[in-house]
Amino acid sequence: MNINFWISLLSALILILLIFNVRNSRRFNLFDHWLHHKLIRRRDGIGWQIIAFINDPKLLVVLDVFLASFLISNNENLLAFWALFTLGFTDLIGIFLKKWMRRKRPILHSDLEEGYSFPSGHVLGSTVMALIIWRLFAGQLGNRLLWILLAIWLMVVISRISLKAHFPSDIIGATSLAVFCFSISQQLLLMVI
């Protein structure tokens, strides 16, 4: 079995454990609330709000369409469809999971934040977009691209916690879901190529 299988399996297991504990474990939720409180020292608003705005799930869809257009202009139609499918598939699963879990956001979250908390849509979208971009351009741009994508992802994670929009488990759940969905999509792409 290849490494993609093990990554898919590990991310699925982490996601399942988080879902189970968020829904059923009072002790886990108390720990998650406590950790969230420890991570947010103060609210540094505008910078983190800008990062959250730039990585809004709706804007990531627009970015994905631009990416697909670029790929189509380079006669990479299959990769363009794959990029659109990967983000769309991941977002749909994330929306379904949010509605099914119905987890309330942390106390004192911004009025700009609506909807449920688990998983974080911003982290879900930015993680899967980073993985898509890395998959498409890592060969040409190398390790620099990886470090840039990791820095952007980390800023999104910090912004979601700093703005009190999510608990730590929402961030981990979104990352696990993104990795799982990306792994499935990548397997489908490899089967077609």
Rank of each mutant, 00 (worst) to 15 (best):
S126G: 05
R103H: 08
S69F: 11
I51Y: 01
F53W: 13
L67N: 02
R144L: 10
L67F: 06
R42P: 00
F5W: 14
H122K: 05
G115F: 06
V61A: 13
L154M: 12
P106M: 04
F53H: 13
G45W: 10
N4A: 12
G173R: 03
F28E: 04
W6Y: 15
R42L: 07
P106F: 01
F20R: 09
R43Y: 11
R41E: 12
L71P: 09
L190H: 12
D44G: 09
L141M: 12
F5T: 15
L79H: 07
W6V: 11
L60H: 01
I193T: 14
A83N: 04
A165Q: 04
F118M: 03
A165G: 10
G94W: 01
S73W: 10
V179A: 08
R26G: 07
F167M: 02
L141P: 00
R103Y: 02
S169K: 01
F85I: 01
A52W: 00
K38P: 02
I14S: 03
I161S: 02
R26K: 13
G47P: 02
L97R: 10
H36L: 01
H122S: 04
K164E: 03
G47Q: 03
K104P: 00
S69Q: 08
V156N: 00
T86E: 05
A178L: 09
V192A: 13
V65D: 01
M1Q: 11
R102C: 14
R144G: 09
L59A: 04
D91E: 10
F118Q: 02
G115V: 06
I54V: 15
L84Y: 04
P106S: 05
M1S: 14
H37M: 07
N2G: 15
L124I: 08
S73H: 07
L79R: 09
R42G: 05
H122E: 00
V192S: 13
D111L: 10
N29A: 03
L131S: 07
K164T: 05
L124A: 01
I148E: 03
G125D: 03
E76A: 12
L112W: 08
F182D: 07
F20M: 09
L189W: 08
L124P: 00
W100H: 09
K98E: 02
R26E: 15
I51R: 04
L163W: 04
W147Q: 06
M191S: 14
N2K: 15
S185D: 08
L67A: 02
I193Y: 04
I51S: 03
I19P: 00
K38Q: 14
N2L: 09
D170N: 04
